[in-house]
Amino acid sequence: MRAILEGIVLAVLSIAALWGAWQVPSASTGETWAGIVPFGAALGLLIISGLKLACVRRPATERAADSPIADDASLQVIGLFLLAVIYQQSLQWFGYLLPTALVAPVALYAFGVRSWIGLALSAVLCPLIFHIVFFELLGVFPPFGEVFDLLDAIRE
């Protein structure tokens, strides 16, 4: 089942990539087509997905021994990924300090830290230390929150 799914995912990816390459306008005289390499790579991927699906034809008993596609731990990783997506999006809305102060204890809790003092400290220390290292010492300009920016509020 897993191998079939992998083959199908690769096939879908390659067809999408073929379609994308086909959208590239044709080359003017004396030039090479800009879509030639993406098209070739996508075609190669389609052939591989075909080979992958062709290789899956095995006895049912053997297929049954395949590992599950997703288990509980995988779902929890997806949960952590969603936290990452929310965090990166909230950096745009709320700047660096506030989202980091909220996400740091959540991440620590997810990895097994259960000390409430530790979690509370992380909400203060993580944004502070990262801010000092990257935005003060290295001189990187911090992301500005479009909706609300704690750093802006502190500075005012």
Partner: peptide, 27 residues
Amino acid sequence: LKGLASALIGILVAMVGLDPISGEERY
């Protein structure tokens, strides 16, 4: 098969953006 597929996906991801020669958009 998975190794070659990984390499091809790497190539496809690198193709995202403007073509350096003609300036055409890709993906």
